[in-house]
Every structure is written in structure tokens, then in C-alpha cells.
Design a protein around this nucleic acid. Structure first.
Lengths: 326, 326
DNA sequence: GTGAAAGCGCTAACAC
DNA sequence: GTGTTAGCGCTTTCAC
């Protein structure tokens, strides 16, 4: 049932009806009551599509992430969606599967749907893309992976966090380091900004540790390689993984060979994924407040609608979780 | 840039432009080429809002789930979103946090946005709600939790799966059963359709097992209760949990007391959550093909738009994963 | 082949 | 207090 129909049935004009619906003055009490009771009875639902068209805003945000099976993104999207909702925006969520062409298609779709803001966890980087994004109308916020310096970015200080972790390991006396990051093997083909920054943090810190030795493992059979390596180690080594999932897998593989942490080796993960709660020994890791990032993204976009431009860069807090294994 | 502007700049009418854009006849080759090259240069993006308004369809689906932190829902939403996208629909995802009022608000919002179909994992049940849902315009598909018999439903045969699991335990010689389902304590206040069906499957099967004994545990301190219970057991008992997360927690609690599975007790979970891959011993559980359910939901909704009504009930496959612990 | 006109449901500016 | 008018950007029907 449209406003026109209701107005006709109530014997008033569309604008009067509007005034009642929006609780605005310009209508007598008697009529207001009458209309209200009519609406009560027959029900009326506004058509947001028509509203969007005339208002030039859709009260919606879009968010593009790789996928939702990764609990890290799921948490982010969850928090984002929630905060957006509280601010009065609904969310389109779109999954790019790290596919640049797909990302492009999704972006165009969001734009065509006149969203009021976009959060983009991009698989693409570079100034060309950045320039394009800047010229599309609604504010676009890149998260996790930087796209180019001009594109507003919200993420974590991954460089600093990895330096801290490395420094902590050194302070515990470790000098032999294994750095595990399988995705690095594909670093030329995808946007690995955040992983590269972690890597840089590790390297810069290692350079300051006298007598430090390091080996990077970026192949898919990292577990096997480490098993071999451990057998040859005389000194207790420290294994730094760029994600908890690698750490968990390595721990299991080494356990099969009767290696135990922290007895025979130290190991740390990254991300503080939920399953660590039910993992023993308790894994030392870096916790990123991803939910807070999701909320902040929604806040920034909502504020952007109110005239406050997106910050060029905003870094959220991280925490070193010193547990049993390092 | 709107069609009107482009048409004016190209010196043609809006409709001619339309014909070029949609590759329809009624325009000379020369003009078509000319217009195409203009579009190439200046770029044009359709306005889906305006399209939706005039076409009366938005090419979008809505999906309401409890939250995305639960990987079960995250997987479902992921698959749904993907399949919807392939069928040409974008998805609004909304989080109700199991809050019925919130669910209502979100539903109204989706309806106001003229979505073409809705997937609803509802926290509410009953024929009143069912009747309301049936009268809202776009097809609404309930998933996981039945709402009322009239509302199309897509889920799993949870009753049968739990009977199978129980029967399997009995075939392994177990006669003493603990059934763990903490949410059951709130069964009056929320839509627990699926948990109740599992429960019924368990009960019906137990009734067939001669000499079977069972105790249901539905309090939040289930771990402690089971620890106490185990200490008093003489016979090796079987613990059936309605979710892997309980099983994992119980296993950890019992391990602290030096109880080991399967040596001292059998235990099974439900859901086959991802973290089981890195859990040892390998937990016996029931695997629900949740991704397939998500995809099927999108397919059903897309077909509904083509005139094929939603089925009243469709059950997806489940698999008993017989592993180490039972 | 091309174009004009009407209208989707709504809101805003400006009358009466 | 109440109503009229003119669009938002697009598609569709029908006429030229």
C-alpha cells in the first residue's frame, strides 16, 4: 500500500500524511489521531528505494572482504555490521575471494547501488587503483591492506607488533629464529602489505640482536621442514609464525616427533584466533582487536557522512599475549 | 553522470542511449559506435536505485542470522552470499543477536528496502509469526529453526542424526549416557526447534536400548558436573554433546583430572566445527553440510523469483563422523 | 530507426 | 493547517 492510496483513503493529501508519519507540525490533532489509527489498522511500510532515489542517499554501506570462513574477517564484518546498524545503516557484504576482477565487479555494483560508504579489504594495490577509488563518490576506507598512500586506511601497526614480539623473544634469550609465512611465496601476485610489514618488523629487530640467526620458511610444507630443522638443532630455537593456524599445525607436527614447547622450542603465533582458548599449551601470540576495527570502520564512515573526512591512516591497538610457549 | 546528460552530450535521446547500453536493435551502427566510444571515455554507471524503483525489484536478498562469530553461521552466510552473487543478487546480511525485537526491526527494514527474498534464521516461532511472514510479499525461507509448519523451511534432519549417533553408541556397547545441552535451560524463551529435535531423537533411540540409563545436563557448569559424575562412574559412560564446543571444553576439563577419551569415557560432539581439524584425539561428531545449505537457500530464493514456489520443507545431508572418541 | 510521454513512490519548495 | 507542483533516474509503451 502506497502513500498515495492511504492519503486517498483517509481523504487527505500525501504531504499531510507525511507530516503525520514524520511527526512534524502542520496538521491538526484530530486528523493526526485519525490517520494514526488508520495506519495502525492497515499497516504501512515505507519504500526505501523511492526514498533513496529522491534523497540521494541509501543509508547503506558496503563491505568487501575476502571471505567469511576466516574467523578474523567474520569477526570484523560482524562488528562492522552491528555498529553500522546502530548508526542507521544497513550493510551489503560482498566476498571477493581475493580475486581482483571479482573485487572490481563488486565495487562497481556497490557504487551502482549508491551506497553511502565502502569498506574495502583489497587484494589489489597501487596508485592507479588508489586514484580510481578516490574518484568514485562515496567515501572508501581501505582496511588491513594498504592500497596506496592517498587512500584512507584503517589497520594495525603490524610492523611494531612484530618488532615487539621479536624483541621479547630476544629478551628471553633466543637467538635462533624461524620465521614462518607461507603466503609470502606469492608476494608478487597479491596485496600482501600487512604480511610484508610484519616481516619488515621482524627483520629490523633481528638486525639489532647480536648473534641472531634466522631462516624464513615460506613453503606449504613448513611443518615438515621444521620437523627436520628441529632434529638438527642443538640450541633451543624460536619459531615465529605469521598466523596462529601455522603455529597450531606446527605444534601438532612436532608433538608427533616428541618435541614439546616450551621445553624443546619456543613458538608464537599471530591473530589470537578463537580456537586458542581450547588449545594447550597456551600459545603466545599477538592479539589484534579486530572487532574494534570493524566498529571503528563503521564509525568513520558514518562520520564521513556528517562532513568529517576519513583520516588518512588510523592504527588500532594490538596486544602481545605472553603465554606458555614463548 | 546520468543518462539524460549523456544523451544530451551525444545529441541523441535517452531511449536511443538505452538501446545502445542494452544492446538492443533500433539504432544505426554509426551512432552506436559513436555513443560507445563516448561512454568509453567518460564512463557511465547505472543507478540501481532508480532501476529498482521502476522495475519493482531490487536484485537483492536479505539474510538474518544470529551472529557471525559463530563459524557455523559464518560458513552459511559465506556460501549463501556467494551463490546469490552468482545468480545476480547482492545480499544484505543482518545480525539479530537472537533478539526477537531486533529481528523484527531488521525484517521490516529488509522489506522496506524491497528485497527480492529473505533467509531467516529466526529466534521466534509460532503460527502467528508464521502467518505474518507469509503475507509480506517477497518469499521468506526459514533456516535451521522451524517457525511454523506453513513457513518454508530448509534445514537438517537433526532428529534422525541424533538417533543415528545414539544407536551407534549403543552398538559400541555403551549403556550409560550423559546428554549435554546447556541452551536447553532457556528452552521456553527462545526458538530451540533444532535442539529439541535432536533431543527427541536421542530420547526415542534411548527408549529402544535395553538397560540404558541417561542423564541430561543443561546447566552452564556442565564441565564441573561431568567431572564429578565421571569420578563416581564404574562403567565407561558415553557423553553426547549438542555442540562440539561443549565436547572440547569437557574434554579439556576431564583431561585435567587425568581422564582420557576413549580410554575412560566416550564423547561425541555435533557440528564438526573447523577447529576439530587441529584437535586431538579426533572427536567423533556429526557433520552438517552447512555451506551446501547456504547455497541451496540462495538457489531456492532465486528460483522462487522465476515462479517456482519455495518447498515447504527441505532437509540437507548430514554425516556421522566416526573418529577416535566414540 | 528514433523519440515523446507517463509513471515507479517518494520528498521538497512553495503556495493557498 | 493543508495542498499543489516538480522532480529524483530510470524503463516501458506507443507513436512518428
Amino acid at each position: 500500500m502506497t502513500k498515495k492510496e492511504i492519503a486517498r483513503l483517509c481523504g487527505i493529501s500525501r504531504i499531510t500524511l507525511d507530516r503525520v508519519l514524520n511527526d512534524r507540525p502542520g496538521v491538526s490533532e484530530a486528523k493526526r489521531k485519525e490517520v494514526l489509527s488508520f495506519l495502525e489498522k492497515h499497516g504501512y511500510r515505507e519504500n526505501r528505494i523511492a526514498q533513496s532515489l529522491v534523497r540521494g542517499e541509501s543509508r547503506s554501506f558496503g563491505i568487501i572482504v575476502f571471505d567469511l570462513n576466516n574467523s578474523f574477517y567474520a569477526q570484523m564484518v560482524n562488528a562492522f555490521q552491528q555498529a553500522a546498524q546502530e548508526a542507521g545503516y544497513v550493510s551489503y557484504i560482498m566476498l571477493s575471494n581475493k580475486n581482483p576482477e571479482m573485487e572490481q565487479v563488486l565495487l562497481e555494483d556497490l557504487l551502482a547501488r549508491q551506497v553511502d560508504g565502502i569498506v574495502l579489504n583489497s587484494a589489489v594495490k597501487g596508485p592507479d587503483y588508489g586514484g580510481y577509488l578516490l574518484n568514485q563518490g562515496p567515501p572508501i576506507l581501505s582496511v588491513m591492506n594498504r592500497i596506496s598512500p592517498e587512500v584512507p586506511f584503517l589497520g594495525f601497526d603490524e610492523y611494531a607488533s612484530m618488532r615487539e614480539l621479536t624483541a621479547y623473544a630476544a629478551s628471553q634469550g633466543f637467538r635462533r629464529f624461524y620465521y614462518v609465512c607461507p603466503p609470502l611465496a606469492r608476494k608478487e601476485t597479491s596485496n600482501m602489505d600487512s604480511l610484508l610489514r610484519r616481516r619488515q618488523g621482524f627483520e629490523d629487530e633481528i638486525a639489532l640482536i647480536s648473534g641472531a640467526w634466522e631462516r624464513t620458511i615460506d613453503s606449504p610444507d613448513f611443518s615438515m621442514q621444521l620437523t627436520e630443522a628441529l632434529k638438527a638443532e642443538s640450541e633451543r630455537p624460536c619459531i615465529l609464525c605469521t598466523s596462529d593456524i601455522y603455529a597450531v599445525e606446527i605444534h601438532r607436527a612436532l608433538m608427533n616427533e616428541k618435541f614439546e614447547s616450551p621445553r624443546d622450542y619456543a613458538i608464537a603465533g599471530y591473530d589470537n584466533i578463537p580456537m586458542l582458548h581450547s588449545f594447550s599449551p597456551r600459545l603466545t601470540t599477538v592479539s589484534l582487536n579486530i572487532a574494534e576495527l570493524g566498529r571503528e570502520a563503521a564509525r568513520l564512515l558514518a562520520n564521513a557522512r556528517k562532513g568529517q573526512p576519513l583520516p588518512k591512516e588510523r592504527l588500532m591497538a594490538h596486544t602481545l599475549m605472553k603465554m606458555d610457549t614463548l
